[in-house]
Amino acid sequence: MTGKTHIVGGITASLAFAQITNYDPFILVGAGVIGAILPDICHGGSKIGRTLPMLSKVINTLFGHRTFTHSLLFLVLMAILMNNFVQNEAFTAGILVGMASHLLLDMATKNGIKLLFPIKVTVRFPITATTGGSAEYAVFAVLSLFTVYFGYGVFIS
């Protein structure tokens, strides 16, 4: 998936999560956007990879793309780190929700992800989309609609 699809996915997931928590939705959504692009630190051409090119190059050299940073292991390690070093629970929750949305969206691509890294099995949904293809644009459109729906539920109700 492209960066914009991951961003709208992080927003959608954060707004949905905000409906079932008492966390500040603005913090949750802001952190959700960061979390939604964070796993692509392993790809130099991604939004975050272009922002932090040296870190991206090191991670890509060590692990490759869609392996460690797209795994449950990375998600759990981030949860542990954030719970120990970040005081704001809404920020931590937003990062983790955004990361989870990223993993789910990339599981919907033909290449899938190494969700169980270091086990080298690729995980993907039975129906997949090509990154940047027309199916991804449909996913983007549906996520945009859900963003409006969940946003209305959080900010208007």
Results as ranks from 00 to 15, higher is better:
M1N: 08
M1H: 09
T2A: 00
G3F: 07
K4C: 02
K4R: 14
I7D: 05
G10K: 05
T12D: 01
S14R: 08
S14M: 07
S14F: 12
S14I: 09
S14H: 09
L15T: 06
A16D: 03
A16R: 05
A18W: 11
I20K: 09
T21D: 14
N22V: 07
Y23P: 04
P25R: 10
V29W: 05
G30Y: 11
V33R: 06
I34Q: 05
I34T: 12
I34V: 15
G35F: 08
G35N: 13
G35K: 10
A36T: 08
I41K: 10
H43F: 11
H43N: 14
G44M: 11
S46R: 12
K47S: 09
I48Q: 12
I48A: 12
I48W: 13
R50I: 12
L52Q: 01
P53A: 10
P53V: 03
L55K: 11
L55V: 15
S56L: 11
K57M: 13
K57F: 15
V58C: 03
V58W: 13
I59M: 14
N60L: 01
T61A: 11
H65D: 07
F68V: 10
S71V: 10
S71Q: 12
L72I: 15
F74H: 06
F74T: 08
L75D: 04
L75T: 06
M78L: 15
I80R: 02
I80F: 13
N83F: 07
N84D: 12
N84P: 01
N84G: 04
F85N: 13
N88I: 11
N88C: 06
E89P: 09
A90L: 11
A90T: 08
F91Y: 13
F91C: 09
I95L: 13
V97Q: 05
A100R: 01
A100Q: 02
S101N: 01
H102I: 12
H102R: 13
L104V: 15
T109A: 02
T109Y: 02
N111I: 10
G112R: 02
I113E: 08
I113P: 14
K114V: 05
K114I: 03
K114A: 14
K114D: 11
L115M: 13
L116W: 13
F117A: 12
I119C: 02
T122H: 05
R124S: 14
F125R: 00
P126E: 00
I127P: 00
I127E: 00
T128H: 01
A129M: 15
T131S: 15
T131I: 15
G132P: 12
G132I: 10
G133D: 05
G133Q: 07
A135P: 00
E136A: 05
V139N: 00
V139W: 05
L143R: 02
L143D: 03
L145C: 14
F146S: 07
T147P: 00
T147Q: 01
G151I: 04
Y152K: 02
Y152W: 14
G153L: 14
G153W: 01
V154A: 12
V154H: 11
F155E: 04
I156R: 03
S157K: 12
